[in-house]
């Protein structure tokens, strides 16, 4: 039961984080379209790190 609540919390946190990353990246791209490639790469790396953390937590909490 508690690990299900924990899983929910993890997913909420990761969702907020991913939203921030994606949103800020899009703002950046809108401001400087010529830097799209660099912003996308950085965005994917950070998103992957966050995802790794979230999956790690889910995996340990299982």
């Amino acid at each position: 039961m508690y690990n299900l609540i924990g899983a929910g919390l993890i997913v909420i946190g990761a969702g907020i984080g991913l939203g921030q990353i994606g949103g800020k990246a899009m703002e950046g791209i809108a401001r400087q379209p010529e830097a799209t490639g660099k912003i996308q790469t950085a965005m994917i790396i950070i998103a992957a790190l966050l995802e790794g953390l979230a999956f790690g937590a889910l995996f340990l909490g299982k």
Binding site: L49, G52, L53, F55, L58, F59
Partner: peptide, 8 residues
């Protein structure tokens, strides 16, 4: 993190 990300 590499292994868990891919697996999960």
């Amino acid at each position: 993190s590499l292994l868990v990300r891919l697996f999960a």
